[in-house]
Computed example of a mutant assay.
Amino acid sequence: MKLSKLVMAMLGGVCVAGAGSAQAASWEAGDWTLGLGGNINAFYTVTSCDSGDLNAGGTTLARLACGSATNTDNHSVSNGLLPASLNFSAKTRQDGYDLGANINVYYGLTSQGGAGSDALAFSTVDARQIYLTFGNANMGTITMGRNFGLFALDAILNDISLIGSGPTFTADDPGHTTLGGLGYGYPYTDRLAQINWTLPTSGGFSATIGVFNPLDGVESGGGKAAGNANPGFHGKVGYNWEGSTPGMISATYLVQDVDLTTGASSQIEGWDIFGKVSIDNFGLAGYYFQGDGMSTLALGGLVFPGFNQATGQAEESNGYYLQGTYQFGKTKLGLNWGESEQKKVSPVENRRVTLGVYHNLTSSLTLMAEYSDMESKTSVGSDDTSAFNLGAILFF
């Protein structure tokens, strides 16, 4: 199995045609088939910041280039866009229904608070996915639990830096994971408590609709879940085709009501479209999104707010990326250009270019090198960051 397909199968139970199981090991336990798999990755990264007109650690939180760094090179050993993970699954068929359970736990390499933390600090552990599934060919599949959201999911799954690193969060502190293209073309899909119904696939067409626990759009950092008079709603439609030029296209929509500190009500709303196609050894992919009440990086929270806390004005954001790849033998070359823009609450433009080389040393181990150039622009000026990383990811 190709590693790109393995990653897509692992994240959120999302399977592409022919991907198969994400677990390298499986065994029978009574009526159940149990699976165990995961990944470990590590990257040596050198970042260089030119804080330019904005100065390091400036007032615009949405500005991603440089972050808290000064004009110097910074070295780190850390995870890439994916944390390390341990993924457990169980499945069976009972009374005409396919049942499944998934518990996926993710682990950070760097100590809590980043690479510069105290020597005796602990790394992070994050249970991102805990969900059950049931269904059959006639009814489709119900998914219930904590899982990745639908919005922007295909964008991150198909980013060349998904198994790599791409841009770091800040030049001097890689944190739990890097950004990849988050904030540079697409927002984070987030980990949501949700209940979804995926309809039976027909002729390459697929569709999922569901509800999710609403996010706090103003008051809490990190997209904290918050009670609301109504749930959040999201949906996705897609079409896959095979043949001499296989590919796919998908579109998603997300909306939820938000109660603001001003006493008014508003909405978080967004839509996106993704497409990709393969032509011989070449691959092309493109993505675009628009959002109201969300930043270019996240769906909600104080750190990257979707609303002005004083006036209640909603953020307006949009972004896109274009990506090309070329496969020769066990090696793939990739180039990704992505841009995101916020227009109202924290006006900023973030741009990223990543060039990567990815070599499958074995069917489970990929070695890679990436170079990324990032720029953030506001009305004041711009900051620039470059990052070079060497690393590997092992799937088991």
Rank of each mutant, 00 (worst) to 15 (best):
L3Q: 12
V7R: 09
M8T: 11
M10S: 12
A17T: 09
G20Y: 05
E28S: 13
T33W: 05
G38F: 01
G38A: 03
N41H: 01
N41A: 10
C49S: 15
N74R: 09
S78M: 09
T92K: 10
T92L: 06
Q94E: 15
D95V: 00
D98C: 06
L99M: 10
L99D: 08
I103V: 13
V105H: 01
T110E: 12
T110D: 10
G113P: 02
L132E: 13
L132M: 15
A137H: 13
A137T: 14
T141K: 15
R146S: 10
A152G: 06
I156A: 12
I163G: 11
P174L: 03
L179K: 13
G183P: 03
Y184C: 05
A193N: 14
Q194N: 06
N196S: 11
T198F: 01
L199S: 03
V211D: 02
D216K: 05
G221K: 07
K224L: 15
A225Y: 12
A225T: 14
A225N: 13
G227T: 11
Y239W: 07
W241R: 00
G243K: 01
G243F: 08
T252V: 06
L260W: 04
A264S: 11
E269M: 14
E269F: 08
S278V: 00
S278N: 12
S278E: 12
Y287G: 00
Y288R: 11
G293R: 05
G293L: 03
T296H: 09
G301T: 03
L302N: 05
F304M: 02
A310V: 14
A310M: 07
T311H: 10
G312N: 05
E315I: 08
Y321G: 01
Q327Y: 03
F328S: 09
E341H: 04
E341Y: 02
Q342R: 02
V345H: 04
V353T: 10
T354R: 07
L355G: 12
S364Q: 15
S364T: 08
T366A: 12
L367E: 01
Y371E: 12
S372K: 11
E375G: 01
G381Q: 10
I393R: 09
F396G: 02
